[in-house]
Design a protein around this nucleic acid. Structure first.
Length: 264
DNA sequence: ACCCCTGTTCGGCG
DNA sequence: CCGCCGAACAGGGG
């Protein structure tokens, strides 16, 4: 599931555990999810400390605990965060469970393309630190956008929208939504977009990011009825603007849907 | 059985 | 060295 707004939704699920200590923990160190992570240190350090706050940047999340402990989570393709009761027993794909007195904070990820990272220290972890602007914030500026497009001029615009260092939090359906709103063909080589098309992509990027956050992050509710997402997987799905049957192809390594009439 | 998948990383190639 | 592309990762679902 997880793109920008869904990540924000899942991050908030653990808010109820803020201010409370972790009493015990369940995890399976050999799982792909923990690749490159010192799970022994994670276990040793997190038990007994308090969850203090969390933050999301694009598709990444950081949970900050007392005594300088930092937990980074990425949901990959199938990750989810939720809360269960304190006597919860983990099922097959509940790979990380933090038990507090009154609840269990659960990270589930069947496919394990997600990731768990851990850091202990005064300063925030290097893997968290970044100058990448959040798209829904004022720091996502036109100059940054233009420079990023220039740097990736040879790739199709769809592939560029999926690059997290430039479009933090954008995933496959949001990229299609953006290009549909901007009326730009996903396979168009970025260098060949006109200034007007670039401006339209910039505006649509901010619009889709802000609107999906506003509407979906509180409760994972559906995007507005007239968005492309509702049509993109249905065979025979139609353009919400002009009813043209959508086309589909693999672009930027991902299945892409677009309207052949309004996107050129 | 076979093909699909809202993500990231890495090796090969130009 | 840079940047683009396809494959691989692991598992469930149609």
């Amino acid at each position: 599931m997880p793109e920008l707004a869904e990540v924000e939704y899942f991050r908030r699920q653990w808010d109820i555990g803020i201010g409370h200590r972790v009493l015990k923990m369940s995890l399976h160190p050999r799982k792909h999810l923990f690749r490159g992570t010192d799970t022994a240190a994670l276990r040793r350090s997190l038990i007994g400390v308090r969850l203090l706050r969390s933050e999301a940047r694009g598709k990444r999340m950081l949970f900050f605990f007392s005594d300088d402990n930092w937990l980074g989570l990425h949901l990959g393709m199938t990750g989810k965060l939720r809360v269960e009761s304190a006597n919860f027993r983990p099922a097959k794909h509940d790979h990380l469970v933090l038990y507090q007195r009154d609840r269990a904070l659960v990270f589930t990820d069947s496919r394990q393309f997600g990731r768990v990272q851990f850091h202990h220290g005064k300063d925030e972890p290097v893997w968290w630190n970044s100058a990448i602007p959040e798209i829904a914030s004022a720091s996502f500026r036109r100059a940054f956008f233009e420079a990023f497009l220039n740097r990736h001029g040879k790739a199709p615009i769809k592939a560029v929208l999926l690059m997290q260092p430039g479009f933090s939090g954008i995933g496959n359906w949001m990229a299609d939504e953006i290009l549909w709103r901007a009326k730009v063909l996903p396979s168009k080589i970025t260098r060949s977009l006109s200034p007007k098309e670039r401006a339209a992509v910039f505006r649509a990027t901010r619009f889709v990011a802000r609107e999906s956050l506003r509407l979906m992050a509180p409760d994972l509710s559906d995007p507005p009825k007239n968005w492309l997402i509702h049509e993109r997987w249905r065979s025979g799905g139609k353009c919400p603007r002009d009813d043209t049957v959508l086309r589909r192809a693999r672009i930027g390594g991902r299945t892409t849907a677009w309207c052949p009439r309004c996107q050129r």
